[in-house]
Design a protein around this nucleic acid. Structure first.
Lengths: 196, 196, 196, 196
DNA sequence: CATGAATGAGCTTTCATTCAT
DNA sequence: CATGAATGAAAGCTCATTCAT
């Protein structure tokens, strides 16, 4: 009943967010206009405001949605019964696949400080931290199980995430390398930093 | 005489560019206003247009300037008589130092495609390619001299530059780690991907 | 049957008008949104358009309703068998009570010229004129019966109505003076202008 | 030098304020658009923002300007060596002349609470209170000197100001009565409330 | 009848850009 | 050369209004 309506609204919101994410990743926050987002969905500017309070809100929800997808992905990896090496390889692959196919804007919005309210910022940073922690956990596990050498966990994680997020800058859907090949190669090289 | 004038103008241009770069890195292209840039230099908006055709031009020159600094840095490294391992270590350190101290916006401006004219874009991409090639040359040299394993040069370079450029996202001047320490650690870990 | 429906509709209309009047008086015509009016009645924006053609119409009907109440009030006073002094005193009291309790927007909407159609404007002005005439009649009656001095009727009426309508600007339901006390005092002072 | 520029800017500001005041009085805050104000001065919307931070600021300065004019007027009356009756008569005349000729919006903007920031509101209310106090002072003086009966000062002042402010609602520059005649009549009648 | 959803006109505001002085 | 001033295009946002269901 009312939940039906609510669900329909939620679907529409998701649709908008998905579409908006692509543009936001492409052009950045300031470079994206509400009109553009609307036009891509054959809507009008005004209609967006039925679903989202304002541009900031839209961007924020975008962030949340993508972060959730990312977190879902890595949580499954964490909970699997793979060994740490395989876990890290999977996490890397997953991240790259999201970043290339789903237009993930994970951590893609530089300096979110300038766009979000304090409250929103806290939530975004919290989720980012969660995601980072999952990576740290895998690395720690590897060290404990002596699969990895005793590295500076935070540093290594920053290197890995940096390398992964940079892919969006140069990845070309029609380029010579498939996302799969890239992720395979990335996983191989990055793991060399860790395995004994 | 006219060269005197020209030199004075060049100085002023440099001054503006240096100041603008800092703000541009902080707030992004669209988030930075001409007024802000002018205010920081105690100028007025209008005056900027004596030195630069328009905002895009300013951004473009900014890019050129920073790229030149970066290229100067790596060229010196290339021409030194260090071995490949030391060269790569130096290049990494140099890049990080520029990225943290000089507020380099090297490659920091994502997707320049949207702001530059075709002509400008070609020049920027050319310089970026030059910079990349220098890294590639060091890696190739390492492989030839059997200091590095036979890696996929382009892939490894992308990983390295990605990791380096990400530093700007989290680096905090007042944080616990100095740029020096970071660069040391980064160089160590990244080299692990390469050395046999 | 149809009269039953009609009656039910009329009731609803009244309900809406009463609620709308309060907000309109508070925030003015332009400051009041259809949504606000609807929300206060737990309706939706769209539903209002079943009862009223548009916002102007709503405002117009609002005016009519309130004017009718005011006119009813003063007509009863006129028809009573009080002497002119008592009639004027009553009329003043009645006006103040309406203005403070019932949130009368009598003449409260300044410059209605900008919101109403010509036709509507004529009707509103007509009713306003009627109301004014009732005051004039009382004053004339007082002069004829030598209860009042021979004043400029229109001028005195304008003074009285101005003083009365201003009350809405400063009246505070929780203030020290009750509407009753205010009306008592106002009547006393205003009558001093008239009585010999 | 710089004061010359500043003075020129101040002049322009005044010019805008004067023009804006007229429209604001006519159409109210929400009904007035920046474009209208600009158009009347053969300017463009954008230019207004060179002189005023935003619409609220413009309105606020408008208020201040008019209040200052009003206060100047009544201060001169207060300081004159007239007797209380003449002072009150002058104050009333002055107010009416301002309200009719100068398009005074003194206290004309109903419910300023909805448009001003707390800080601004305090200042506006402060000035209003000052103006009111001047009237009170005259009335008190009259009572002390036994020119007036012992009336409720606040009440009488509210009646007077209400009557005066209402004039804007019906005054017509081309009407039969001149502002002078009106003010003469108003002063006469209103004083009857006071004199013994 | 009522409403959820969509629309589009209109408003405030920002800002790159221009130009007379 | 530098600047104060002006401009206009474009953005974000609001809201009266409509309409299929």
């Amino acid at each position: 009943m009312s939940s039906f309506r609510a669900q329909k609204m939620a679907k529409k919101k998701q649709e908008i967010l998905r579409s908006a994410a692509a543009i936001l990743v492409e052009k950045g926050y300031q470079g994206t206009t509400m009109e553009e987002i609307a036009a891509k969905l054959l809507m009008t500017k005004g209609s967006m405001y039925y679903y989202f309070k304002n541009k900031d809100d839209l961007l924020f929800q975008c962030h949340l949605m993508i972060m959730e997808i990312c977190l879902d992905g890595i949580e499954k990896v964490i909970e699997s019964d793979r060994n740490p090496i395989e876990k890290l390889r999977c996490a890397i692959k997953e991240h790259i696949l999201l970043a290339t196919s789903e237009k993930s804007m994970f951590m893609a919005l530089s300096k979110p400080h300038h766009n979000f309210s304090d409250e929103q910022l806290q939530e975004v940073l919290g989720l980012r931290k969660s995601y980072s922690h999952y990576f740290d956990r895998i690395i720690h596990e590897g060290i404990d199980k002596q699969a990895f050498g005793s590295v500076d966990v935070k540093m290594v994680r920053l290197i890995i995430l940096g390398a992964l997020n940079w892919i969006q800058e140069w990845y070309d859907q029609n380029g010579p390398q498939s996302a799969d090949e890239i992720s395979e190669a990335y996983a191989d090289y990055l793991l060399k930093m860790l395995v004994k």
